[in-house]
Write a protein that binds this DNA or RNA. Structure first.
Lengths: 162, 162
DNA sequence: TATTGTTATACTCTATAACTATA
DNA sequence: TATAGTTATAGAGTATAACAATA
């Protein structure tokens, strides 16, 4: 691969007048690539990022989660949670368990199958993540975490003001 | 809003064992919010991020771009570029101009309408961007740009190895 | 033979509103 | 009245493969 192509691969498609604008577009563009790489990764396991997020959340939660909990935590509308869970249920990865004392709700639990699936997938995913982040130092990762939190502060305020 | 809710708004939905993992998920999660805020913004103008990207690219390009150019620059498959341009053409924002000397290709140009539209929209968008980034300093923006470029280096390598 | 753009297809995710059963 | 979850709908983006016209 030529140097020019190498340059083109990671450079942004346009140029910017200001640092803040360039910074935001850097995040955008990086996330675009991240989504492409992720969706290819998940596709190989016949799943998706949205489904993976649910499974990981279930795996790591110490308390049972309802559909409403998933909706709020993942910022996915409850109507769309229904569909996502339908697909996960059809794959025998999760189950809906009626909640005693509130007949409107379900606790969402991983099936035996789901536990095995997410354990295996999360391991491979974590390896992938570390590979992607391998050229950032611990310090750089900490900086990045801090900067992203700053951006989310404005974004969340904006998102909720609507 | 209580401190706890304030915390919940910008915190990630799960916790992480390693800084690199947390850093990557910070980017992912920030991008998720960014996409929600963006798509709401663009929706008000009856357009989308994908369409906006094309229009901005056309606006800022000094040389005429073919559909193939747009496809490569934006990492959108040419078959999907066709559909995006169809929608933009129906809104009278772009036009396809036959290329002299290569009857397979079109140069994509903004219409008069398109020029006006993107000028106005880009101005408002830029204001929005600066508002979102307002709590990051110039220095922090520069750091962020550098860190994002590092991530894209791995991501692009991974993306192209497939 | 390779490339540009189109068509067809299938799948996800997203957003919204109206609905039900229950609290 | 408010809440949990479902259904219905519409739209967008994405990926893939097959195709026609042209180079």
């Amino acid at each position: 691969m030529s140097a020019q192509q190498e340059q083109a691969r990671t450079s942004l498609p346009i140029e910017f007048q200001s640092k803040p604008h360039e910074a935001l577009m850097s995040v955008w563009w990086t996330a675009t690539l991240l989504r492409k790489v992720s969706s290819k990764f998940f596709h190989e396991f016949h799943t998706s990022d949205a489904q993976f997020n649910i499974l990981v959340l279930l795996k790591d939660s110490t308390t049972p989660l309802t559909q409403n909990d998933l909706s709020r935590k993942l910022l996915v509308d409850k109507s769309n949670i229904t569909g996502l869970l339908d697909r996960l249920q059809k794959q025998d990865l999760i189950q809906r368990i009626p909640v005693e004392g509130d007949r409107r709700s379900y606790h969402i639990a991983l099936t035996k199958n789901g536990v095995k699936f997410i354990a295996r997938l999360d391991k491979l995913y974590t390896e992938k993540v570390h590979q992607i982040m391998s050229n950032l130092s611990e310090r750089e990762c900490s900086d990045l975490i801090r900067l992203m939190r700053k951006m989310r502060n404005s974004l969340a305020a904006d998102h909720e003001s609507s």
